[in-house]
């Protein structure tokens, strides 16, 4: 082997989580748009991972309705990931979803990469009210160290979604986005997942003063900033007048 031959530089892992509400009310064009949008954005996420010398991106999907299920039992590298259409039906067991996410956000579970990880990005989509007891699960999740440092974004699909719970989930108002048409849902899924992947999988700019122990989260702040700009740029008349 020539000295000029090399192996890839070790890359950390950034897991992008999709948490998708597949309750009965999501049936029809809502779940249809979600399936389409994620399928379409995957090649872009794959490209971000392929060109990236800081981190590789893996994807994990949890769908929740009556109970919740992981699409695969381990995060899958973006370039290997195959999206299987999600079907809607059943209740909205958000509490179960929070518990299952909390279990996997652990060094012994999904965050087990040998050379370490960057903070994950967690993208939640929901159109309704939880039908189970979710508070305890959410409180525990919010104490999870991985969850604390994650980039979090939530899309409220239509006017019936409980945005207050989503705000508790993301920890701020900026990262909860409401969409009312299939077109804007697709646009939002694309923007949020591409931006979260770009920011989450790169070495950050850190900063915020010279206190090196300060508990900052520059990536989450950068992400919130970009979401804000995007929302200002994409106010859609159609979205306001029609839709869910």
């Amino acid at each position: 082997m020539s000295i000029l031959d090399s192996v890839s530089i070790p890359r950390r892992t950034m897991v992008l989580f999709f948490l998708v509400d597949t309750s009965g009310s999501m049936d029809g064009d809502k779940i249809g748009a979600v399936n389409e949008a994620i399928r379409e954005v995957l090649p872009e996420i794959k490209a971000i991972s392929a060109e990236n010398a800081d981190a590789l991106i893996k994807i994990a999907v949890l769908d929740f309705s009556s109970g919740a299920r992981w699409l695969y039992n381990t995060p899958i590298e973006a370039d290997q990931f195959v999206w299987n259409n999600l079907e809607a039906g059943g209740l909205t067991d958000l509490g179960v979803a929070f518990n299952m996410l909390n279990d996997k956000l652990s060094r012994t579970q999904f965050m087990a990469d040998a050379v370490g990880s960057y903070a994950p990005a967690i993208f939640m989509m929901s159109d309704g009210e939880p039908t189970d007891e979710y508070k305890k699960g959410l409180a525990e999740l919010r104490r999870n160290k991985w969850f604390k440092v994650a980039i979090k974004v939530a899309v409220a699909i239509g006017s019936d979604a409980n945005t207050e719970i989503l705000k508790e989930f993301t920890g701020n108002d900026e990262c909860v986005l409401t969409v009312r048409t299939p077109a804007s849902l697709k646009k939002m899924i694309r923007f949020a997942s591409v931006t979260a992947s770009q920011i989450g999988s790169k070495s950050s700019g850190v900063g915020l003063g010279d206190d090196s122990d300060a508990d900052t989260n520059q990536k989450a702040a950068d992400f919130a900033g970009q979401i804000k700009t995007f929302q200002q740029d994409s106010i859609d008349v159609d979205d306001v007048q029609n839709g869910w």
Partner: peptide, 14 residues
């Protein structure tokens, strides 16, 4: 750095 599970801002600053 390889032994750090999650590279947070704090870790990057360090």
């Amino acid at each position: 750095i390889a032994s750090v599970p999650c590279l947070t801002d704090q870790m990057e600053r360090r």
